[in-house]
Amino acid sequence: MAHLLLAPSEEHMRAKDALKTADRSKNAFLAILAHELRNPLAPIRSAVQILNREGSLAPESQWALSAIERQLRQMARLIDDLVDVARITTNRLDLRTERVDLAAVLRAAVETSGTLVTAGGQELTVALPDEPICLDADPIRLAQAVSNLLNNAAKYTEPGGRIWLIAERHGGEAVITVRDTGVGMSPALLSSIFEMFTQGEQSRARTLGGLGIGLTMVKRLVEMHGGTVSADSGGQDMGSTFVVRLPIVESAAQQPHAEGSPKMGTSSLRVLIVDDNRDAADSLAMLLRITGNDIRTAYDGPEALQVASEFRPDAVLLDIGLPKMDGHEVAQQIRREPWGQRICLIAVTGWSDETDRAKSRAAGFDHHLVKPLDTAHLAQLLDAVERPARG
């Protein structure tokens, strides 16, 4: 009898362990898939940046280049979504909160989603409050949540339709409303709209892709900020309304430092680029060489150490997954050399998790950038390397 009573429990534990193992395998697969998909995007983005510097492209060529750039951004966003699936399911989404003005966050969200709305042919109306509304929030993650709502509205609204983004203060809450005149939602869909991989009707040739996790991300991010999100619709072809409520703080927002949007300007650094993907290394080398830098390339770990020893670079852009010797070991060996103490080491990799960033810090890297590179961010980092030399 005791055996009969214990058997279901043991079977339950085995099933539970099997589910945990399968979940870990899924998350590991998604991380590897994201890494492998990011690698070929890196040389494409560098090539686009190189061509963007040409001032005499024919209109047709300029359109083609713009189309490549738009689709590249879309592909990078989908890869980020893949990684976020694992982060959501394992509660590893982290917030970096600061005092922010809600209007600045919403402007960033509109900038992110503007291309999709324009391509969809919708009219976007933005109504921001006259007075600042201050929040303790992660500005990047909160902008991501609002951008996901705008993207969702654009995806399910026909060309010529309308989308509204409205921010108001109601008592101690900030209320953000995203409303559209799109296809609407049935009661059945409304009940599950924030669940993972849920997608609405994609008829009318409005299939713009996506993984079905955007609204799940919205709910998770809003709740992490201490808020709530709700969805409503009058039904088919009656549009949809999403309302986000967030707690307000009363003190003034910290004013951000005035910074432009740096492009890959001219500089004169000695830069070593290391990547076993030759297209990635060579295209980035070409871009940085055009902007006035002295560049060397290497394609595996031992070659990187040899070139670094002879070249004595100011900065090294170093891939992690190298043959013969990985990027972490290369970084550690550079740091052991007297000439390697002050070199700026920048990891350039498809691995984006916080554990990957921690490994880079432990190996001696100063920065960890994820492929495809944000060239504006890279410009900032290289400018900071150069600044002491200007003295």
Rank of each mutant, 00 (worst) to 15 (best):
E337T: 04
I166M: 11
V271R: 01
L106Q: 11
S192E: 15
T198F: 09
V218G: 08
M264V: 15
V271F: 03
L269F: 01
G114Y: 12
E329A: 08
G260F: 10
G235M: 15
M185I: 03
R289G: 08
E69K: 13
P43I: 12
K263A: 13
A34D: 04
A258K: 02
L124A: 13
S251N: 09
L322A: 06
P247A: 08
A31T: 10
D294S: 14
P129W: 09
V117S: 10
W351N: 09
L106H: 10
Q255H: 03
R390G: 02
A127D: 14
A103F: 02
L272D: 03
E131H: 04
R278A: 12
Q341H: 07
P323N: 04
L317H: 04
A379F: 01
G160W: 06
V243E: 13
A18G: 06
A86T: 01
L322C: 03
V249Q: 05
T241Q: 13
L142C: 04
E259I: 07
K371M: 10
A379L: 00
R357W: 02
D80V: 08
G265S: 11
S251Y: 06
T89R: 11
T21Y: 09
T21L: 11
D138N: 07
V126L: 14
L5A: 08
Q74L: 10
K26M: 15
R45M: 12
T198Y: 06
S147A: 15
E11N: 02
L215F: 08
I290C: 01
F311S: 03
K371L: 07
F29S: 00
Q306I: 04
T177W: 07
D80S: 11
I88A: 13
D319I: 01
E111W: 07
F242W: 15
A127L: 14
V183C: 14
I193D: 14
G200Q: 10
P302E: 04
T228W: 09
L373N: 02
D23E: 14
D23L: 10
R45F: 11
Q341M: 02
M196K: 10
T181L: 12
P256R: 12
P43K: 08
I44Y: 11
D23T: 09
S46H: 11
L51S: 05
D180S: 12
K155Y: 09
D282A: 03
I166C: 12
G160Y: 06
W164R: 15
P40D: 09
A154K: 05
L93Q: 10
L19A: 10
T90L: 05
R24P: 04
H35C: 06
R179F: 11
R70G: 07
D17C: 02
Q254K: 12
G292L: 09
A127R: 15
V271I: 15
A42G: 02
A315T: 01
S9C: 10
A304K: 00
P388E: 03
V100D: 02
A104W: 06
